[in-house]
């Protein structure tokens, strides 16, 4: 029983970390852009496909699949996803910076669809699920009946590391100061000779790369990746960010843990729970928003008259 609980607790933390890597991006992008980037989930889930492509390239030249190959492929995928974010901003999203929020919203929903479908078409046989390897396959046998897979350790450890690094970056580096300046007041930042475009580029790179890491974990956790995982991952990440309060980093993380917790409980207790996971996550979102319209940690903006 205790082992069972610990196993579930471990699942919960792992899932929560994966969601958080994606949710943090939603939150940070919203803080800077003031507009929701709906396709962030789809961008993040491009990473596993890039990694697969890199792996296939690798195993064509070297023989078999090695740990180093996997590592290199993942690194390539993370960087490539970061660049993809910057490119999408340049191609599409920046054109909606001063447009009404509704337009940016619909445009990024459409962008997500286009991205998803492009992956499906470009990747060979991309509309079918692709098996995705576990990043580490070792197990630590802690006590009788309780296994601590190295994969979960990797996910939790690197998520914590990424979040801490992101926090340090935002609080203690010149780039972080610029990002925070632009997210507080774009015009004032411009007057202080901070170029918002370069801040947008940097933010897109950082959030997309972090999202890409989350995407790799997401696929690795599931054991497969699908071209349309992006929408589910995106909705969960977005929901987590919204539950926590858009623009709030701690909010995004706590929101992720809440949704992951709900997810774990539902899957462990309900028969056929997996098919209800989004239902419960969304019921949570709806409830939170009805009672706290700006999420748990968000502040309701008082409109200036």
């Amino acid at each position: 029983m205790a082992a069972e609980l610990m196993q579930q607790g471990l699942n919960w933390l792992t899932l929560g970390c994966i969601y958080a890597l994606i949710a943090v991006g939603f939150s940070l992008l919203f803080g800077v852009l003031k507009v929701i980037h709906f396709s962030h989930g789809d961008v993040s889930l491009v990473a596993p496909f890039v990694a697969l492509a890199a792996l296939q390239g690798w195993s064509a030249s070297a023989s078999g699949m090695s740990a180093i190959g996997l590592l290199v492929a993942c690194a390539i995928a993370v960087v490539a996803t970061g660049i993809l974010g910057v490119v999408l901003d340049w191609l599409v999203i920046r054109r909606f910076r001063d447009a009404p929020a509704m337009m940016a919203l619909v445009a990024t929903v459409a962008l997500g669809i286009a991205l998803r479908e492009s992956v499906g078409h470009i990747f060979p046989n991309g509309h079918n699920p692709q098996p995705f390897p576990r990043l580490i396959d070792a197990n630590f046998n802690v006590t009788e009946g309780f296994n601590l897979p190295a994969f979960n350790v990797l996910v939790i450890g690197s998520s914590i590391a990424v979040v801490v690094l992101l926090f340090l970056l935002l609080q203690h580096t010149p780039l972080g100061v610029r990002i925070r300046a632009v997210s507080q007041d774009r015009e004032a930042a411009r007057l202080m000779a901070i170029s918002p475009s370069s801040v947008f580029r940097a933010t897109f790179f950082i959030t997309s790369a972090i999202g890409g890491l989350g995407g790799l974990f997401y696929a690795s956790y599931a054991g497969v990746t699908r071209f349309d995982f992006g929408i589910q991952a995106g909705l969960i990440g977005f929901s987590a960010a919204v539950v926590g309060g858009l623009g709030s980093m701690p909010g995004a993380i706590i929101g992720s843990l809440l949704i992951a917790g709900l997810d774990t409980i539902v899957q462990a207790t309900l028969p056929d729970g997996a098919s209800y996971r989004l239902v419960f996550a969304f019921l949570l979102v709806i409830l939170v928003l009805v009672f706290r319209p700006a999420g748990l940690f968000g502040s309701v903006a008082v409109e200036k008259v």
């Binding site: 929701i36 929020a101 919203l105 909705l235 919204v242 858009l246 989004l278 979102v285 928003l289 009805v290």
Partner: peptide, 21 residues
């Protein structure tokens, strides 16, 4: 009580919930 992005998410949520149910 909610607007724009939040409201959009709520409607998406409703849509997905209905589909899954």
């Amino acid at each position: 009580r909610t607007r724009e992005s939040y409201l959009a998410l709520v409607t998406i949520a409703f849509g997905v919930v209905i589909h899954q149910l």
